[in-house]
Amino acid sequence: MGYLPRKSLQVLGSIFAVTTFNFFLFHIIPGDPLRLIARTQKLDAEQVAALRIEYGLDGSLFSQYLTYIGNLLHGDLGYSFALHEQVSTALMRALGHTALLLATSTVIVVLFGIFLGVFAGSRQGSKADSRTIIGALVFWSMPTFWVGMLLVFTFGVWWGVLPISGITTPNAVYETYFSYLMDIARHLVLPTLTLALVDIAFFVLITRTSLVEVMSEDFMLTARGKGLPRRTLVWRHGVRNALLPVMTASALYISGLVGGAIQVEVVYSWPGMGLLMYNSVLARDYAVLEAAFLVSSVVVILANFATDVLYRRLDPRVVVAQ
């Protein structure tokens, strides 16, 4: 079997395993979903029993599992009583918002991180090197929500130049589509900046360490012996080799953010996955949580899959090793 079909089967297997685990995880935690409904509305025992049948909660755990898988295959993730809408609808909307935040901040964090990492790594031991590391670590050590609050205070409250909440201005009327996009862009600045400031150290340090290691390899001396200008030496031979671990880190970072930008999304009321999960926890909205967990896991699996495929393109040695 070829590499891609085999790998795709593994991906499907992992998704299936995660789905199963996720289902049972949510069914062994204490609490009855019907009691949640009954808490807000006055229901008698008969009505509860009727609801139990209606939601498929009357059968055995295994038959419930089969129903769950069946619904999942139809794209049905259930209904959220807290949001009063289909879970899939809420989830897709949040996923889209998170994807926007994620894509912007990942591009910034990865690109600037690599650039600063190369800057420091190619000057190993210099003052510029240690200043870059210290600077990156200072921001890395700050709690994300705290950096977020500082930025909110500075840019939103003190200078009042940037919006601090939501994805668009409430009740705004847009004359053109462009002004709508600009409004989103303005709302995007602070959340992105917060993520970038804190997380950039991750990429700076990985790139730097990796580059320092590569720079001492024998083939770097060969490249130097060839009389290559320093910039060519560092980027073509050094960085090209040093980027392999950075790519793995990027995949980890992206998959971590899908469910993990919670702090930023909460601070800026950014209506993405993080905020959705946060509110669902407060509202004990198990249906949404269960689906959000599932989506996060699937994203992690897919990100790893993408890394594997990319790795084979970037490192010719990987193909042989398999």
């Binding site: 060969t222 130097r224 009389g227 290559l228 080799n241 040695r317």
Partner: peptide, 22 residues
Amino acid sequence: NEVRWRDISVIFQGALNALNPV
């Protein structure tokens, strides 16, 4: 850099690692 390789080239010790793997 002008002289390196154009006039003086080196066959490095342990060529096993002296080639760029990628």
